[in-house]
């Protein structure tokens, strides 16, 4: 029983860590610029496909993941400066439409280049094997996901809570106008955050491909989950997104084990109730909404 519970917990945590890696950038950028960015999953998808292509052509897994992060980040920089800039002054509707348009373009592009079928990211052998963790054996890959997620979370935690850059970021999320008034360049801060967020999404997409398989519909299919993490955690709240992603991962895994029929249904109902109860999310970043 204990071993079973621990297995579910580990499954849920590793899944949640992938959700966290992909969603954390979205959380911060939505909190900073209030842009409704529905295209964020596309960056994870592109990262996953880049890693898939490179590993299938014989590149080392870690180098390929590095390349995926860089490509996603660069693409984020290009898209932010060209397409997103004009959006900040427009309303939510324009943002929703344009970013959905980007999802369509990314999906069609990926289908055209890589085909309509699931695409495999080739993992090194030592990751695909199970390892002994004392009371049972467990896939090394999932432990790897938890480790990477934990390291990234720790680094982000340090940067956001402990560095001057993080202080700027928090100030800008809390009140962008005030931050501008005291001389911060919020635009540059935002572009930087956006690029890092896209890179992390690429990382999550690339290493998480074993949990959330790469396919052209990836960006739209998992959009709900990413948005749930952001909204439930609270826009702009880094800690909120970590808690929400891990909780979502564990709850979803639990649901799949015990109520395979009604799993997603219960999950959505829970999110619905939560949003009605706390429209600002679990751990809102802003002191005053």
């Amino acid at each position: 029983m204990f071993s079973f519970a621990l297995t579910i917990l580990l499954d849920g945590l590793s899944y949640g860590m992938v959700l966290f890696l992909i969603s954390v950038g979205l959380t911060i950028t939505m909190g900073l610029m209030r842009v409704v960015n529905l295209a964020h999953g596309s960056f994870a998808m592109i990262g996953g496909y880049v890693a898939g292509y490179l590993t299938q052509h014989g590149m080392n897994f870690f180098l390929a993941v590095g390349a995926a992060v860089i490509v996603s980040g660069l693409l984020g920089a290009v898209v932010e400066t060209t397409v997103y800039r004009p959006l900040y002054r427009k309303g939510e509707l324009a943002q929703v439409l344009l970013t959905i348009g980007l999802v369509f373009v990314a999906t069609a592009g990926v289908t055209e280049v890589f085909g309509a079928f699931p695409y495999n990211v080739k993992m090194p052998e030592y990751l695909t094997q199970p390892v002994d963790i004392g009371f049972r054996t467990y896939p090394a890959y999932r432990l790897f996901l938890i480790a990477v997620g934990a390291v990234v979370a720790a680094v982000l935690w340090y940067v956001i809570d402990g560095s001057i850059l993080g202080a700027r970021l928090r100030a800008a999320v809390d009140n962008a106008r005030m931050a501008r008034a005291v001389g911060m360049n919020v635009n540059v801060l935002f572009t930087g955050t956006f690029v890092v967020g896209c890179g992390l999404a690429g990382l999550g997409g690339a290493i998480g491909a074993g949990v959330m398989a790469m396919e052209p519909s990836y960006a739209l299919k998992y959009l709900r989950l990413f948005l749930i993490v952001v909204i439930v955690g609270g826009e702009g709240s880094f800690k909120g997104s970590l808690v929400a992603a891990l909780a979502l991962g564990v709850i979803d895994t639990l649901g799949k084990y015990f109520f395979s029929q009604a799993a997603s249904y219960l999950l959505y109902a829970a999110v619905f109730a939560l949003l009605l109860w706390r429209p600002q999310g679990l751990l809102p970043a802003k002191s005053a909404a």
Binding site: I231, A262, Y265
Partner: peptide
């Protein structure tokens, strides 16, 4: 009546969740 007091992303999310729930009900 349930959701119109919210605005912005929260409202968008709630409408998305409603469609998802309806889809699941229709499916099951």
């Amino acid at each position: 009546a349930l959701i119109l007091h919210t605005t912005g992303v929260t409202f968008l999310m709630l409408t998305l969740v409603i469609v998802s729930i309806m889809f699941e009900i229709g499916n099951q």
